[in-house]
Computed example of a mutant assay.
Amino acid sequence: MELNLGGKRALVTGSSAGLGAATAKLLAAEGATVIVHGRDEARSGRVADAIRAAGGVATVVLGDLDTDAGADKVAEAALAGGPVDILVNNAGFYRHLSWTDATAKEWVSTYNTNVVSGVRMIQRLVPQMRERNWGRVITIGGGLATQPMNTHPQYNATLAARHNLAVSLARELKDTRVTSNVVSPGAILVEATKELVTGIGPARGWGNTWEEIEPNAVNSLIPNDRGRFGRADEIAAAVAYLCSDYAEYISGATIRVDGGLVKSAF
């Protein structure tokens, strides 16, 4: 399927690693010019270099989205090369804390990073999309928005807010060709996840090799119909589809990419 992203410019926030990097690489492979965003120049540069090595087009913008000044800097740098047609709000912050340890200060900080930072980019980039009558805003959410755990409540709540703001934005963009949607990942196999699971797997009787550990860990922690962890490329694929002309009739939707997650036991 040709997604027709040639000629489009996409800013993926927090794309120096993980889901953001996978998304940036796939959008570039589909023909979009990608703006890789991060705080670390070396890590962001490696993602952009990988895109270029594969024949894609990428630039790097650096900046902290936690402040208005930082968001201004990122938006100005992103727009310097032309209009931004696609905004993927992926940047976010996570700390595993109990209700006791998650102080009010931690709640405010997490909300600013995970919610307000995305709002800053929407306010700086979506008005131009509306003027051009074409655009895509994809918010990366998560299953914990609707099935929160008893731990890290400050993070769970920000995911719910991200889902909510994306739908509100879709209502605001009524009668335009600018859409707003959520991609909601389940448990995705990134380096930190694999390290955690392989570290505790043998002691919990899940096995000693990854082939043994993965299905047992999934059954114990994140039972789902596919019986495995998701991969970053699978999240990127959902984002890319929503960016395409094929998704013109999808707005205000949450696309779950979680293997049919039943309930997280984390």
Results as ranks from 00 to 15, higher is better:
residue 3 L to E: 00
residue 3 L to N: 04
residue 11 L to Q: 07
residue 12 V to K: 01
residue 14 G to A: 08
residue 19 L to S: 06
residue 21 A to S: 13
residue 25 K to R: 15
residue 26 L to Q: 05
residue 27 L to Q: 02
residue 27 L to A: 07
residue 30 E to H: 09
residue 30 E to S: 08
residue 32 A to I: 04
residue 38 G to A: 05
residue 39 R to I: 09
residue 39 R to L: 11
residue 53 A to D: 15
residue 56 G to A: 10
residue 56 G to N: 00
residue 58 A to T: 05
residue 62 L to S: 11
residue 63 G to T: 11
residue 65 L to M: 07
residue 67 T to K: 10
residue 67 T to M: 04
residue 70 G to K: 07
residue 75 A to N: 00
residue 75 A to C: 08
residue 77 A to K: 01
residue 79 L to A: 05
residue 80 A to I: 02
residue 84 V to P: 00
residue 85 D to Q: 04
residue 90 N to S: 03
residue 91 A to V: 01
residue 93 F to E: 00
residue 98 S to D: 09
residue 104 A to H: 06
residue 108 V to K: 11
residue 109 S to P: 06
residue 120 R to V: 02
residue 124 R to Y: 08
residue 128 Q to R: 12
residue 130 R to V: 10
residue 133 N to A: 07
residue 133 N to W: 13
residue 136 R to G: 02
residue 137 V to K: 02
residue 141 G to T: 08
residue 142 G to W: 04
residue 145 A to H: 04
residue 145 A to S: 11
residue 157 A to P: 06
residue 162 R to F: 05
residue 163 H to W: 12
residue 165 L to C: 03
residue 167 V to R: 09
residue 169 L to W: 02
residue 174 K to C: 12
residue 175 D to C: 12
residue 179 T to G: 09
residue 193 T to N: 14
residue 204 R to S: 10
residue 208 N to R: 12
residue 211 E to N: 12
residue 212 E to V: 11
residue 213 I to R: 11
residue 218 V to A: 04
residue 220 S to D: 08
residue 224 N to G: 03
residue 228 R to V: 01
residue 232 A to L: 05
residue 232 A to T: 04
residue 233 D to M: 12
residue 241 Y to R: 06
residue 241 Y to K: 07
residue 241 Y to V: 01
residue 243 C to P: 08
residue 244 S to N: 12
residue 249 Y to T: 15
residue 250 I to Y: 09
residue 250 I to Q: 09
residue 255 I to M: 14
residue 256 R to Q: 14
residue 257 V to M: 12
residue 259 G to R: 01
residue 260 G to D: 15
residue 260 G to N: 14
residue 260 G to Y: 11
residue 261 L to H: 09
